[in-house]
């Protein structure tokens, strides 16, 4: 992949879009729908919810094109996405806490109970973390996530470096197996 400046949507496409050109809108959708949906999915309870908000966002993008000043279309569309997320959260009877942090951050707190199914999955995952537990999960978390080197951990725990590698590998496998069992 070659790094380079993002030149799309280009000025001409944006101008056509503001003027009401549906094809230009479709081009912008093709270019930005995926990042917008990823943004919404990370801040919605389910992907289905994110889809609903996304549809709303793109309808707003079309309707509000006249008020768009023509600069930084990505920022403009993401601002609409942010606003629609807030509106949807407000209108939802579910208790999802959404707040703005410096006018920038929307999902201040992510509720683990995103959906019943997801809640069950997370509970299963918690159980597995506990049941696998001990040195195995610790090795996974400390070396793979917390950033400690396997050598450091080995030294602290008075074991060989190879032991830590084995614990990491077995920890991941046991978590995987545990989750498979929960699924069945």
């Amino acid at each position: 992949m070659n790094p380079g400046p993002d030149t799309f949507p280009d000025t001409a496409t944006v101008r056509r879009f503001i003027a009401g050109d549906r094809q230009a809108f479709d081009e912008i959708y093709s270019s930005l729908a995926s990042p917008v949906l990823a943004f919404l999915a990370a801040r919605s309870k389910t992907l289905q919810n994110a889809e609903d908000v996304s549809q709303d966002v793109w309808n707003q993008v079309w309707k509000k094109r006249e008020s768009f000043d023509g600069t930084h279309i990505k920022g403009w569309i993401f601002q609409i996405a942010r606003n629609r997320l807030i509106d949807h959260a407000r209108s939802s009877k579910r208790q999802e806490r959404i707040s703005l942090e410096d006018g920038h951050d929307i999902a201040e707190r992510i509720d683990p109970g995103a959906s019943i199914q997801r809640e069950e999955e997370l509970n299963a995952f918690r159980d597995c973390v506990e049941s696998v537990g001990g040195v195995f999960v610790e090795a996974v978390v400390r070396t793979q996530i917390a950033g400690e080197s396997p050598q450091e951990l080995a030294k602290q725990q008075g074991v060989a470096r190879a032991t830590i590698d084995t614990r990491v590998s077995r920890g991941k496998q046991q978590l995987r197996d545990c989750m498979e069992q929960k699924k069945t």
């Binding site: 992949m1 070659n2 790094p3 380079g4 400046p5 993002d6 030149t7 799309f8 270019s31 990042p35 917008v36 990823a38 943004f39 990505k74 920022g75 993401f78």
Partner: peptide, 10 residues
Amino acid sequence: LINGGSYWRN
């Protein structure tokens, strides 16, 4: 997502 260049689109 907002500031990423063409790299992120790929």
